[in-house]
Amino acid sequence: MPAREVLDASDMRRAIRRMAHEIIEKSRGVDDLVLLGIPTRGVWLAQRIAHDITEIEGHAVPSGALDVTLYRDDLRLRQVRALEPTNIPTGGIDGRTVVLVDDVLYSGRTIRSALDALNDIGRPAAVRLAVMVDRGHRELPIRPDFVGKNLPTATDEAVRVRFVESDGDDAVLIESDAEHAR
């Protein structure tokens, strides 16, 4: 399966740093910010961004996890999936600015599920979206606010974002293998 590296570890580090700066700038302060990563890799990305924001601002930003499996619209099209942990930071999301974080933005359906899930947990003042890679091909009217890398792709390609935490290294790859397209 031919794979092409699009970002290496230092590219990713710089992109994450830039997103952290953009989130701070757009939020005009970080007091009410909560980062929620969508498992699995969105959680690692949320932690990296939170770490960078904390370094830049000297102010700890809570980061957690939001599993959207139970809200997906394609449950009946696939075998049942195991649930991933949901971890909402203490203080909740009511009245705060929630930044949803995922590794790859594609159809937008995961994010729609995440918005439904958030709705059952509380009422944020605003919800933003940060992704490592926007690969296009949206099926719903959803757009990201913060993007690590815009990556035009074909539907028979797959984008893999790798994190040290789960994959041993940091990298963004494109695999041109229809069987792995997601």
């Binding site: 599993d67 139970l70 809200y71 449950l75 195991a82 649930l83 991933e84 942990p85 949901t86 439904d116 059952d120 947990i121």
Partner: peptide
């Protein structure tokens, strides 16, 4: 173990104010 782990995740739903899931 899959059932017990799934139960753990669902228990968190039972603790919040909106206990309904659309699944």
């Amino acid at each position: 173990l899959l059932i017990l782990d799934t139960t753990s995740e669902l228990a968190a739903v039972t603790d919040r104010s909106v206990k309904k899931l659309p699944t």
